[in-house]
Design a protein around this nucleic acid. Structure first.
Lengths: 156, 156
DNA sequence: TCTTGCGGTCTCCAATATAGACCAAGTCTC
DNA sequence: GAGACTTGGTCTATATTGGAGACCGCAAGA
């Protein structure tokens, strides 16, 4: 049995709860309810949350609100290039529902709706920002890797 | 003009390049080519990369390889609950092409293929891990927020 | 001989994303 | 006063994507 197989087995990944991850038991104790949450487990609630947040538009929305402060719907749409109104609405709704973002309507005409981060959203945005910066910093390197890969696998 | 509008205008978000983001100019100088990359800009190469990485399966793959070390195809599939062979193959191929992951084939029978992180992938995985942990820690709070939201918007 | 494991690929169908029209209701222009 | 414009969406039609499951070659095992 390999080391990794041992990790898997100990974690009981099949059951849909808990996986160890070599994080050590101190994190597990940090769950006061004894409820083991595991993003790797298909049936774990945290996986559902993760799947929702690990999305292009949701991440960009949080990053934009964090970087530029509270914004109106149309400001967000302009700021996040290529997002459709539908996806923007949908993602904002999801983030609002999960308590990451607050939606404030000013009943004027034309209507004004402002979105801003709640503490939960601010926490996540702070973890997201480095990923955005990393992507920008490493895009060159990744594009080079691609060219090289495509050269090697050029069976056209 | 609001503060945010000023930020947008200064960044020239429409042109598909650069946006400032209140990061200050020191990061910009860190791009030696003078090429301004911006994940928020639809046409920027870094957005393409970001869109690829900001994906449920890609992120889970990197997190799994980081947490459990090099793994075979079937180990990854078992470890990442609910991933189909098709998506696992596809995501791994993309990560390999971009130089984040290495694929090693051992020509035995049955075949053995092992995936592991390259330095680029390890860097990203280290930024991803906190997001996984955060999600697990905050899932309870987010589920509560949902219940409350659904109560308020219960027009059935 | 029939089955199992591995690491995929292929095909089909359902779900999802995007583009674009449409909306109300007040303001601005002519 | 007619028409255009604005905002924050919704609705619909079409394009893209995702998942389920069949299939594959090859060797070992029952």
């Amino acid at each position: 049995m390999t080391t990794e197989e041992a990790v898997r087995a100990a974690a009981g990944a099949e059951q849909g709860q808990a996986r160890g991850d070599g994080r050590g038991p101190e994190e597990e104790r940090a769950q006061p309810q004894g409820q083991e949450l595991d993003v790797f487990a298909q049936l774990c609630p945290s996986r559902g949350m993760f799947a929702e947040l690990a999305d292009k538009w949701s991440m960009l929305i949080l990053m934009s609100l964090s970087a530029c402060g509270p914004q109106r719907f149309s400001e967000l749409q302009r700021g996040i290039g290529g997002v459709s109104r539908k996806m923007l609405t949908q993602s904002l709704r999801t983030l609002e529902r999960s308590g990451l973002v607050r939606r404030t309507v000013f009943p004027e005409t034309p209507p004004r709706v402002v979105y801003d981060l709640l503490p939960l959203g601010r926490e996540l945005a702070e973890l997201l920002a480095p990923i955005g910066r990393w992507t920008e910093r490493r895009t060159g390197r990744m594009l080079e890797a691609r060219e090289e890969f495509d050269l090697g696998h050029a069976d056209s």
